[in-house]
Write a protein that binds this DNA or RNA. Structure first.
Length: 258
DNA sequence: ATGGTTGCTTAGCAA
């Protein structure tokens, strides 16, 4: 069983690529981020015609997350549902194959001296609280998404250039470590200790041609599920060619019967 | 070749 995550950077701009990718790879579960569209404008019919149910938490212009699945889903939850006022669509969750699946788009944070960075750190604390409230490390949980965090130097092509960025600074890496500490395993790292593999390259400054990348898109699984993970790959080819997203999909394969 | 983004929305913001 394959579980994928992909920040598509506008599902409308990426529709043809998304449908072709689904047809080629046929993952059972796909978590999408940065839909940049409302529920109404999501290409639901075409996705369903490809064999997928679409669980969509959209937003006009910015953000928006979804879960696509070829299996049955239940217990769908939209948003964080905590005490904070928040109109940003950044998390959606469902039970699929007896796994609690979360599709997450962590705020980028813009710059470390900005209000958006405060919001990023607060949002990561809220995510930690969400896990503690909604699930346990003893059950099968798979948190997928654009976390906008490169966990360590192995995940950054040019560590010196990026060390002060919102993707790398200590507070965000500590937040990532807290997710791991709660009971999640970075299944990509589990199979690729060597590093040097990236999931995002800036459109600007020839980021991809120069391979100036970072690994900021993640599949995190609780222990029992992580033990069933046989391999993980970043589909770097999807970043090539005409009109790619700036993110590549990450695909994790599990020996899992649900 | 001596620079070099994309998407949404419509000039500016976000990433």
């Amino acid at each position: 069983m394959k579980i994928a995550t992909w920040n598509v950077n506008s599902v409308k701009a990426r529709k043809d690529r998304l449908l072709a990718w689904l047809a080629t790879h046929e993952p059972e579960i796909v978590c999408l981020q940065e839909l940049k569209t409302t529920d109404e404008a999501f290409p639901r019919q075409e996705v369903e015609a490809s064999g997928y149910e679409a669980i969509v938490f959209g937003q006009k212009t910015y953000n928006g997350v979804a879960i696509l699945t070829r299996m049955g889903s239940s217990e769908v939850k939209y948003g964080m549902n905590d005490e904070h006022e928040d109109d940003e669509a950044r998390i959606v969750s469902a039970r699929i194959a007896n796994i609690r699946i979360l599709s997450v788009y962590v705020p980028n944070g813009k710059a470390t001296d900005s209000d958006k960075f405060i919001y990023k750190l607060q949002w990561l604390r809220r995510l930690q609280a969400y896990l503690q409230r909604e699930v346990t490390p003893e059950e099968p949980v798979c948190l997928c998404g654009d976390l906008n965090i490169a966990p360590d130097e192995r995940d950054v092509a040019r560590p010196e250039e990026w060390k002060d960025s919102v993707l790398c600074v200590p507070p965000v890496r500590e937040a990532f470590a807290e997710l791991i500490g709660w009971g999640l395993v970075d299944v990509f790292r589990q199979h690729h200790a060597e590093g040097g593999k990236y999931s995002w390259w800036d459109y600007r400054m020839l980021g991809f041609p120069k391979n100036n990348g970072l690994r900021i898109d993640h599949v995190l699984a609780t222990r029992a599920l992580a033990e069933a993970c046989s391999h993980v790959a970043i589909d770097r080819n999807e970043r090539k060619g005409k009109k790619p997203s700036d993110h590549a999909p990450v695909v994790a394969t599990f020996d899992w019967n649900g």
